[in-house]
Amino acid sequence: MATIKQFQVTFDCAEPERVARFWCEVLGYVAPPPEGFATWDAFHGSLPSEEQGSWSACVDPSGAGPRLYFQRVPEGKTVKNRVHLDVRAGIGLVGEERLATLEAECARLVALGATRVRLLPADEDNESCIVMQDVEGNEFCLD
């Protein structure tokens, strides 16, 4: 049996390039154009008009994180995500120090177009995290 060594996370969205740019800024990823093209514009220009802008992708420049793929779909988001990303900004931090770090990162992400949904305060089992939405309303946790 083969062992899976890589995976990508796929987002259904209305504006793939816009959502990809957002996640590049959040995670420090890059969005190189598809192989054989110097720019995304050159790639899109090679496609029929109905396919232009239909997808985008970004990658971790270190190669450690998964590829993110964004595909245009006709329907909008209607319910809560069944899968979401946890953006790990507060690893190893607890209490007020963790909360201050999460709040600072939340402010940065809101400036990029994210929406703060709610703070989930620490309890006996978990540290605090902030539930957020990206530029198209996909939920993620600032953890």
Rank of each mutant, 00 (worst) to 15 (best):
E127A: 07
A104K: 11
E50D: 10
R98S: 11
G36N: 04
M132S: 01
N138R: 09
V59Y: 09
K80C: 14
G65D: 09
I130C: 01
G90S: 06
T101F: 02
D41F: 09
L142C: 09
H84Q: 15
A114H: 03
V117W: 07
A20S: 12
N126M: 10
V30S: 12
C24W: 00
V19T: 14
F22C: 00
E97K: 15
S62T: 14
G65P: 01
G92V: 06
D12T: 07
F7H: 10
E136L: 02
A122L: 08
L47I: 11
E124T: 13
G28E: 06
L85R: 03
D12R: 02
R116G: 04
M132A: 03
G36M: 04
P16M: 02
F22K: 06
D134Q: 13
S49V: 12
M132N: 05
C106L: 07
L102P: 00
W23G: 02
K80S: 13
V131W: 11
G28H: 05
G95N: 04
R118W: 12
M1C: 10
G90P: 02
C141V: 13
G113N: 01
G92A: 11
M132P: 06
A100N: 11
A20R: 06
E75Q: 14
E103C: 11
V9D: 01
K5W: 11
L27Y: 04
L93A: 12
L68E: 02
P121H: 04
E127L: 04
L68H: 01
E17V: 10
Y29H: 05
R88I: 10
